Amino acid sequence: METLFTWLWPAVSVLLAILLLWALRRRPQATARPQPSQLVEMEDALKELYKLQRNETFVEAGALAQAMGISVEMAEHLMETLVAFAWAEGNASAGIRLTTRGQERAQELIRVHRLWERYLVDREGMSLDAVHVEAHRREHETSPDEAAKLDAELGHPAWCPHGYAIPDPGRRVPPPAGVPLATCTPGARLRILDVDDEPPALLAQLVAMGLKPGAEVEVIECRPGHLRVQINGNIFPLAVAAAKRIHAVPAPVLPVPLGELPVSSRAVVTEVKGGGKQQRRMLDMGLVPGAEVTVIRTAPLGDPVEYRIKGTAIAMRRSDANSILVEEVRNG
């Protein structure tokens, strides 16, 4: 009997160990890397949540479903997955918000997407309405090191071809500058800053009409459901739903370099000259088209000059300030 026990016990121990390992492998792991297709869905949801969180602390499933064009049930599932993956906190029924880790990943995805769009237009000659799908594919496959090399190769661009800002790594993605074209009044002369890259069919139509970043447009008439706009001498009807996807600022009449304004002057930024890291630095300070800036004071020797932008005081050398074109706001 003792011999049988001595032989049987090691066999039972091995069997128990195998069963334990099998059970552990079957247990869901909150931080386990998802399948590639699931990861793309998660990261797409992450980007939409990042945009939605600009207006709300917690985002509910209905808002995410509408933004992504999916069912509420699918949105709830994605929200639960993001929470399990530590990219968000909260719950699907009450709403979730991104964790710091989730915000950082969303910022990197948006940044890389815009870099690829810049590359595809500038280096591969793709049309503005064709780059979104390819950039979307590449963004999910690009490592941080590859993104850094791409950024350097492109010369650290500050804007994607659709007019959206490209921040430095780890920096917050700023919201669109300007105001939606749909909110502008008849007679307004405007310069387009950015045009939404989705849906591609709508973007193709807008580009064919000449409605793209940098173009100047005049609002002729506003009616329920649509506008009439003039661009390059042609008048087009434009649905309000489409006009909401275009951001613009008043077209400058007499832009001047910011560094030439006297103390106490107020002005609106119309354009940021230069390129690469120079524009990125201005972007970080909030000096984007449509932003209001006030000249506060000058140093005793006349340089640097202190400005107020979005409630924050910043100092700049005149040579840097002169790369920013503004239109002065007259009092009264």
Rank of each mutant, 00 (worst) to 15 (best):
M74T: 15
D320I: 08
V83K: 00
E124P: 03
L190P: 13
L203G: 06
M42N: 09
L193H: 00
P262F: 01
S143Y: 07
L19A: 13
Q53N: 04
L181F: 06
L16C: 12
T142A: 06
R280L: 10
E134M: 03
R189W: 13
P257K: 04
L82H: 08
E2V: 12
T57C: 14
I96P: 03
I235D: 14
Q66P: 09
A313M: 11
P36C: 08
E60L: 06
H136L: 07
S37C: 11
G69P: 11
E56K: 04
W9P: 12
D168A: 05
E221K: 09
E124R: 06
K149A: 14
L78E: 04
L98G: 00
K273L: 08
G187T: 11
V207E: 10
N331R: 12
R171E: 12
R172I: 12
P262Y: 02
F236E: 05
Y50E: 03
G214L: 03
V195M: 03
G276V: 09
H132S: 13
K149Q: 08
A130Q: 11
D320S: 12
V293K: 03
D145N: 04
S127A: 15
W116D: 08
V195I: 06
P262R: 02
G286N: 06
W159I: 04
E73G: 13
A32H: 13
T312G: 15
W116G: 01
I96R: 02
T298K: 10
S264F: 14
A243W: 05
A147H: 06
R172C: 08
F236G: 05
E73Q: 15
E221D: 15
R137L: 11
I166R: 01
R114F: 09
R101D: 11
P289A: 10
L16G: 14
G125H: 12
E2M: 13
K244Y: 12
P169H: 00
R105A: 13
I192F: 03
A241R: 00
